[in-house]
Design a protein around this nucleic acid. Structure first.
Lengths: 339, 339
DNA sequence: GGTCACACGGCAATCGTTTGCCATTTCTTG
DNA sequence: CAAGAAATGGCAAACGATTGCCGTGTGACC
């Protein structure tokens, strides 16, 4: 079976009795041709089922109308929101989105940037795993936007536009919530050392804890996966934690399962908080109190940054604490009353 | 800030003191040039950081080295596996994967096929929502492979290669499991009417139930989402079901929550089975008994079908029942003993 | 040593579109 | 009504690769 030859701009031009250039302009520079001519061309193009070849278009114009989104792990539900948002924003602008999975690896990330870069108008890298140098190099060669990562703009080189979750507010919300439940300390179960957002989360927690006069300790790093749960949970118990804040929901759910397995009641014996409000956080047992990021907005926003050049801004998207069933009063104490 | 001009094949040719055509051949037809020349060209290309422009390549050769994968909803964890698998298979073959979200809509699907089709070497449509006619039209214009959908090949036109889960075996596993627990009937909570896999699931259940001499009833259709749960669960209770089989895990989890809300114990009062073994199925409460599809294999397999033309086969990927905590003996009865 | 085949490299056409430039026509405006 | 401006359409040159074809040089074989 051979596929039918595609109809080209020349076919349309012939059928309409005009030059190819006129067809091109009728389609992409409406003001440049006579309205009647344009009408006619559009009619013919429609009848012939003409669709411009994106590659040819990219060749001469240099623009591909395509953007790439790189995420560390496509299967991770956390990124699904960003993907969806980016997809939506791209589609709304008539652009195509290419997705890349960096497999949590800086080198795969580099390779993908190199391979996809030339074929797209810009790249969004979510939760970039590469070094600042990697990113700077990428930024020098391509249009770039980052999600949940910033790149310090050195003098002379403008910073890379990025969109980050408001962890400062978010961690304060977490600490306030725990304090109001009577907790006087918290344990943070850290994720991988390289994680930029992990660092921000811990920094925010520390600052908020300090401000509220409670103690914050960090344990780990642990795998930010269900599998990381047992080790992390055991460490937290050994540290006599009353409130556990986990690097992310995945780890938090792993912790929850381990605690259940060890007969530790949540939230009666210990409270657990996550980050991300990942798919599943509301139907695990007990439903997880977690800091929701508007990942869909973040993804859409990143694409917008790419679409609108010049704005090297850092956009901060709000976060919101979802209080569910995994947090409760500090054991052996009534919740603090307002004074 | 202006981006540095990209290095082209001509730059490499000049620097290496050969013609552009030789560079091209050195890269893509190694046998065609002298080994020493090739060595030299490769060295120069590497030094200059030359990366061939995919668009230009596509223009002259007609091949884009890109494939598209269309799914109804990127955020649905069910499709994450297929995406990952396809991504892996494509990357392994040095191909690029473009992702499209059809938003569960036949018309968006059509539009995406039209827009993406010309820019890729082939399309995978997972859980296609379009009509047979839509798909036949797409197949006439592009290389196509389907996941969990088949297209009856009419005489003269070969069928479209596809990969489908083995629902015949899977539904038999479900029924056998329920029968062994003493259940004498089951209620199927159906998803959308248009769902091809939904139809296959129900057909399989019916056949298996018939063969085992138990009764199978169908209720619905319901939304295949958490939100569909309450209505579906209530209907099942009204029907005095002892075993509920849900269209998919999403609905099953929605049902589970509703049952919990109404004080119905699972699996003591009623057993619940899902389809998909979706992310979260193992940590919801109670952990869900569900039919696992190897979606990652399916996705990879679909890409392979595209890579290897000519094979218009239908590949069947095995399914496997994951028995967890949501199924138990029929209430008021000991599990059937082997006789 | 002559002929033939093959290995190797270059020339130039080609893919489908965009876009700078020019020629013609039509419209303004003083 | 003349002259300049604006509108409109066509020509042709890109864009960056691939590939068919041809010419030359080299080795093999008789």
């Amino acid at each position: 079976m051979t596929l039918p030859k595609r109809v080209t701009i020349t076919d349309v031009a012939e059928a309409a009795g005009v030059a190819a250039s006129t067809v091109s302009r009728a389609l992409s520079t409406p003001g440049r041709v006579n309205a009647a001519t344009r009408e006619h061309i559009l009619e013919v193009a429609g009848r012939l089922g003409y669709v411009p070849n994106p590659n040819a278009r990219a060749m001469s114009s240099g623009r591909t109308h395509t953007y790439a989104l790189l995420v560390p792990d496509i299967t991770n539900p956390y990124f699904a929101g960003a993907i969806k948002g980016a997809e939506r924003a791209a589609a709304a602008a008539g652009k195509t989105l290419v997705l890349g999975d960096t497999q949590e690896s800086p080198s795969v990330e580099r390779e993908l940037v190199q391979r996809l870069g030339p074929a797209v108008d810009g790249l969004v890298i979510a939760a970039a795993r590469g070094t600042d140098e990697d990113l700077a190099a990428a930024a020098g060669r391509h249009r770039l936007a980052l999600v949940n990562r910033t790149l310090p703009g050195v003098p002379g080189v403008p910073g890379v536009p990025s969109v980050v979750a408001d962890y400062d507010s978010g961690t304060r919300q977490i600490v306030d919530h725990l304090v109001s439940l009577g907790h006087e300390s918290l344990v943070f179960l850290a994720g991988p050392h390289e994680s930029w957002s992990g660092a921000r989360r811990w920094a925010g927690l520390q600052a908020a804890a300090d401000a509220s006069g409670i103690e914050a300790r960090r344990l780990g790093p642990y795998q930010p996966t269900l599998q990381g749960g047992p080790a992390a949970a055991d460490a937290a118990l050994a540290a006599k934690a009353t409130a556990i804040v986990c690097h992310n929901d995945m780890l938090a759910i792993g912790v929850l399962r381990r605690l259940a397995g060890r007969g530790v009641r949540v939230p009666d014996d210990v409270s657990v908080v996550g980050f991300d409000d990942m798919f599943g956080a509301d139907f695990c047992q007990p439903a997880l109190t977690t800091l929701a990021e508007r990942t869909e907005d973040a993804g859409a926003c990143a694409i917008d940054l790419l679409l609108r050049p010049g704005t090297a801004a850092t956009v901060v998207v709000p976060t919101q604490l979802k209080v569910r069933d995994s947090t409760g009063p500090r054991p052996g104490r009534r919740p603090a009353r307002r004074r």
